[in-house]
Design a protein around this nucleic acid. Structure first.
Lengths: 126, 126
DNA sequence: TCCTTTGTACGACTTCAATCGTACTGCATG
DNA sequence: CATGCAGTACGATTGAAGTCGTACAAAGGA
């Protein structure tokens, strides 16, 4: 049985968005999320890995791109994190030097219920 | 409430695969279906439209590509139907002149539960 | 048998995205 | 204020994918 929306730990409101946070970087509104765009963003293996790990390994914290330990140039990582944010999958905030990301769980579950379950259940390069 | 796997009409075994059918064209096995590949195939608007209409408008029949009425050259349509089949989303059989397609509902629900619900709930160009 | 229909195969063109080097900005710390 | 660090912006290159014209193959009917 795959994880189900509302019962998996990562689907709880892990980020209650306490006041005083930096403003999120520009992102599409919930109603502007497009299934084609979201699927295209998730069809890249590296980006799928990012979202997968954010869902399963992060615990109530946002993560900067260095946290993932990818062996890629910084400019490549910037490209992919920007793609995820512009597709509406992640939210990014600036904390001093770092730009931390988390998955827009509530928004995505509202617009595309079940989608994040698929990402969470994904296994890389079977 | 979105349609749910197992209750929406199109999720029933609409194609009981009676004997005597032509052999399906080459396609990946269920266990070889990759989430990245499936998402990439569905991220194209025309292909998303094809799958969406196959799920909602087809009634226990397979459909040849002419049924959709797309105003595109035949070689373009061949390209997209082949992409869907090679991604494991559709099954194609040759019926005389026509090559008819249907969605591999059972296989996709087994590997990626909920995915077809998202496609069925999709609305083109909001 | 000829012709129409349905779709493929191949190839050319174009568009788009991934990759990544380099230079730069902005914060933060000493 | 100078240095270092996180990350961006820009641009070049590359490769993959969409688009589609043309030629061709197979089936079926007149």
């Amino acid at each position: 049985m795959p994880p189900t929306v509302g019962t998996a730990p990562w689907t709880d409101e892990v980020f209650p968005e306490p006041p005083g946070l930096p403003e999120p970087l520009p992102e599409p509104a919930v109603d502007d999320l497009r299934l084609e765009t979201v699927l295209a963003a998730l069809s890249d293996p590296l980006r799928l890995t990012i979202v997968h790990r954010l869902l399963l390994e992060s615990e109530q914290f946002d993560h900067a791109c260095g946290w993932f330990g990818f062996d890629r140039p910084k400019s490549s990582l910037t490209h992919h994190f920007k793609a995820l944010r512009e597709a509406g999958i992640t939210r990014q905030r600036q904390y001093g030097l770092e730009r931390r990301s988390h998955v827009r769980v509530v928004d995505l579950n509202a617009r595309f219920p079940g989608l994040l379950d698929l990402v969470a259940a994904w296994t890389p390069r079977a």
